[in-house]
Every structure is written in structure tokens, then in C-alpha cells.
Amino acid sequence: MADQALLNALIELADDHNILSHRLAEWCGHAPILEEDLALTNMALDMIGTARGLYSHAADVEGRGRSEDDLAYLRVEREYRNCLLVERPNDDFAHTMLRQLFFAAFMEPYWQSALTSSDETIRGIAGKSVKEVAYHIRHAGEWVIRMGDGTQESAARLHAAMQDLHIYTEELFHASEAAGHCARAGLLPDRTDLRETWLETLTPIFAEARLEMPEGVPPQIGGRDGLHGEDLGHLLAEMQYLQRAHPGASW
């Protein structure tokens, strides 16, 4: 049971990073300025690195000889366990940056707390990731401020992004059965504890950006049960195409 819970919780976390990395990678070559092509790619690279570490660890925990790629490329939508926030489409630069800020502001205290995990591999991944997400917060946060306190158009777009995305943030704080088990065992942080730090990170940024988080709208939840929106299936179809077309080939 303990291993099964850790396996499932690691896959949730790995899927979050894999899917968000993929979304960021979709920008490569199409960003508003060359510097952002580089920055978005940087964040995509950080996140794919984290995903790989987590999938490999999950595969080891499972001990059935599956690889990181088997986990990433050979599961279908219903088996994917990422939260809904990360699969949201890029839409525009405002959506992309706000999504990144929401996620990074959660992951920063998460990794911070995972530094004291009882699992050595998790401590290692946390040590690397905690520095990376601090940069993601800074980078995405600066853009949110520029857009919120920029032109009329940029403010309007950022507000639209807030309307679209805030309903997916609640899910970050929900612990699946597996995640809850791992939190009690001291393997992974307790997600339900992190709301305050998350808000402390976001509040000053949103104040500068003249941005408010709507309240009283029912949240959207379901990713940890494999209940996704329609976009994820298309993402996976693209991502998994070669592995599906050439079963068993190595690349």
C-alpha cells in the first residue's frame, strides 16, 4: 500500500510537470520577443527535467521494469493524473504567464517542504526544483505586473486570463488518497497546508498588477481522478504519436 500510494502520488506530480512543460514548449519559436522564446523554453526544460526525475523514481518504486518514457508516452487521458490547471491551453501570453505563476507559487513552498522528505530521491529533486521555481515565480510575476499595469489591452487580457484560470487553482490544494497517505508518511508535503504561503506570494504581485482574484465561483476539480477537459487528449495524441506508431522502438 505504501509503495502504491507513493507511485500514484509521484505520477500525479510528474504528470503536472510533464504537461505544463509541453504547454510551454508549444511556444518555442512563436513568442512575442526572442528573449521570451528563450525564457519559456528555459522553464519548459526545468519542468521536463523535474518530470523525468519523478517518472524515473515512480518507475523504480513500482519495480516492474517500466521506464520514464513508458509512463509518459503509454498512458491515455483517463490514466493521466495531472491537475486541470496545467493542461489549460496557452491561449495568449497572459494566460500562459498567469498559469505559470499560479503553479510556481504553489510548487515553491511544496519543494521547500519536500527538502525534508524521508525519501532521499525526493529530497534531491526538491533541492534542484526549488531554485528553478523561484525563478519561474520571478519571471512570470514580473510579466503579470507588466501586463496588469501596462496598457489597457494588456490589463484586459490579464483579467480575462484570471477569469478563465482561477477556478483551476483550488485543485492544487486537494490531496488525492495517495497524496494524503504520502503526506502522513512524511514522504511528500501536505498540499492542504500550502494555501497561505501561496497567497503570500501572489498578493503583492497581484496588488502591483492591479489584479483581483474572483471569489465565490465554484472550482473545477477532477484531474487526479483522470477526469480532464477535452484539450488533454489532443495534447497526448500529439505527444505520444511516435511511441504509438512504432511500438517497442527505441529512439
Binding site: A25, G29, L38, A44, D69, Y73, L242, H246
Partner: peptide, 29 residues
């Protein structure tokens, strides 16, 4: 960056995807 960017989201493994992302990023640099 565009012709190689065309395959980033379809790269066949996580390792190849990371390497291709880094390569295309280098070209931008």
C-alpha cells in the same frame, strides 16, 4: 527554429524532447 520546433511536441522520448528544446533554444541564443 521553426523546422525543428515543428517536432518538439512530437519528440519520441523525454530525453530527446529535452535535447531538442535545448538545441532550438541555443539557436535562438
Amino acid at each position: 527554429m521553426l523546422p525543428e520546433g515543428n517536432w518538439i511536441t512530437r519528440a519520441p522520448s523525454l530525453k530527446r524532447k529535452a535535447a531538442l528544446l535545448a538545441k532550438v533554444q541555443d539557436e535562438g541564443g
